[in-house]
């Protein structure tokens, strides 16, 4: 392989850390969803890098499953965001602290 495995893993770790920072720092629920997408993408990058390192197709297969899971997750999450906005008239996640039940 031309690209060193360590560099790809370092890039995946950096992207994951940035996404985690976004989840922890932002109050807007749309930004939290975007940061979750960044973290999922970084995890997929690590899988593909490992698959390229050992020459196995399993890494890319795992990326396909992560992609499927991300698509399902973001569709449900965005539907929840719409309902959240209809109910609370805001996108701040702090407003969800006042749930019933």
């Amino acid at each position: 392989m031309n690209v060193p495995f360590q560099h790809a893993l370092a890039l995946a770790a950096a992207l994951f850390a940035i996404g985690l920072t976004g989840v922890l720092m932002r109050r807007n629920i749309v930004f939290v969803l975007m940061s979750v997408e960044i973290m999922l993408n970084a995890a997929g990058l690590a899988f593909v890098a490992a698959g390229a390192r050992w020459g196995q197709p399993d890494g890319q297969v795992m990326f396909l499953f992560i992609l499927t899971m991300a698509a399902a997750e973001v569709s449900v999450g965005l539907a929840l965001v719409l309902q959240f906005y209809h109910r609370f008239k805001t996108l701040a996640t702090d407003a969800a602290g006042k749930m019933r039940g």
Partner: peptide, 20 residues
């Protein structure tokens, strides 16, 4: 299983969208 996850996501998104 991935196909089932996609189906569940479809049903869930439809359900929440209709409720709102």
């Amino acid at each position: 299983l991935a196909a089932l996850v996609l189906l569940a996501g479809l049903v869930g998104a439809y359900h929440f969208g209709r409720r709102s």
